[in-house]
Simulated scan of single mutants.
Amino acid sequence: MDTHKLPNILEAALPPHHRATVTWRHGKFDNPWDTWQERSFSDVLKWNRERRKAGVPTDGWLIGNHSPTAADFAAAFPLEQVDFEALANPPGDAVQATWVGHSTLLVQLEGLTFLTDPIFSERCSPVQWMGPKRVVPPAFSVDDPRLPKVDAVLLSHNHYDHLDKGSVLALNKRFGDSLRWYVPLGLASWFHRRGVRNVVELDWWQEAVHPGSSVRVALTPAQHWSMRTPWTRKASLWGGFAVLGEKRRFWFAGDTGMAPVFKDIGERLGPFDLAAIPVGAYEPRWFMKPQHIDPAEAVQVHKDVKAQQSIACHLATFCLTDEALDEPAQLLVQETAKAQLGPDAFVAVRHGATLRTAGGSMLNQPERLPVEKQA
């Protein structure tokens, strides 16, 4: 047998997002769509040169205000008081979601309470003395005694604004082995090294039934990448999650660029009562487009996955890219109107606000982020 043909045979036997040949520059996983484009270190340098030349503030800015104070951020993103009574008594026939900040949501569905990409730390960084700093505090803390028991965590990928070591350790300390962590392939060992044992790895489209319930958790594809250090690029998988109850369904997109897979998600697993879709961290488009959708694309994703209603995430918390921190919520309102969607179809709520939805009907009116231009 010609051994030189072995890599090709291995590639053909693997799913298209798996790689047979692994190097430090190309990990075990990849994006299988033509919409994906790699970004190099020279691209990062180019972006940094451009933002310095344009005078883009790296610690966050608002429309009409390039030097906002803490008071300015507080006015732009008022923190809603968490309705802990509602969290303690979630509706049995609805999906209830509370936005904690960034991509962290507390979601309740058919008797289960779970968190998405929990980050409660001050900074999304390998260290807490430098790196992107919160402009809005989390809606509650892990050790708040009013917080209901959390059954599961849905962890989309290992970037520092989604996989936060301090938050993982705090949640593990409070809930221990009763808390189940659903993660993409290649991430379980990271948790095991930190004493977290109840971890379930999933591949794209793979499902697991949550113990003691009939709710299924499925990892769905996303166009993104993973890395904690330069030598772990794409060493673990990334994705979103569908939570499939007997009557209600929820979908969390994770981090993603626009790709042709979202219609497949809608056809296979939808429609969803509620979807959590990222709308921020999209500028400059020449750099961010393959990995982060913008508000217009987010609206298209909402339609593709057959979401009856959607809640915005990945915005108004950390300054990661070049757009004003209040721009995504403003553009989202415009884009939903352009798409001829109702005003409740896709909303950006305040940090701490709770949204309840069932069968395409919003059961409450959560406080929403201001979308007026800053003076």
Rank of each mutant, 00 (worst) to 15 (best):
D2L: 10
K5P: 05
P7V: 03
P7M: 05
I9M: 13
L10R: 15
H17M: 05
T21L: 12
G27L: 07
K28L: 14
W36T: 03
Q37E: 13
R39A: 12
K46H: 07
R52N: 13
K53R: 15
K53C: 08
A54D: 11
G60N: 02
G60A: 04
W61D: 04
L62H: 01
G64P: 02
S67G: 10
A71Y: 00
D72W: 03
A75V: 07
E80G: 06
D83Y: 10
F84R: 11
A86C: 06
D93V: 03
D93K: 06
Q96C: 12
D117M: 04
D117I: 02
P118F: 08
Q128V: 12
W129Q: 13
G131Q: 08
K133T: 04
R134H: 11
S141I: 07
L147Q: 05
V153G: 07
V153D: 05
H159D: 11
H162R: 13
S167L: 07
L169T: 08
L169A: 13
K173P: 03
R174E: 06
F175Y: 14
L179M: 03
L185D: 02
W190C: 14
F191M: 09
R197Y: 07
L202I: 08
D203R: 05
E207R: 12
A208M: 04
V209M: 12
H210A: 13
V217E: 01
R228M: 13
T232L: 05
L237V: 08
V243I: 06
E246N: 15
E246M: 11
K247Q: 15
G254N: 09
M258N: 10
D264H: 06
E267Y: 02
F272N: 00
D273R: 01
E283H: 10
E283F: 06
E283G: 03
Q291I: 07
P295H: 09
Q300E: 14
H302P: 06
D304C: 10
C319Y: 04
C319H: 15
E323C: 14
E327I: 02
T336V: 11
K338D: 11
A339D: 08
V349W: 00
R350N: 10
T354V: 10
L355H: 02
T357A: 13
A358E: 03
S361F: 08
L369Y: 03
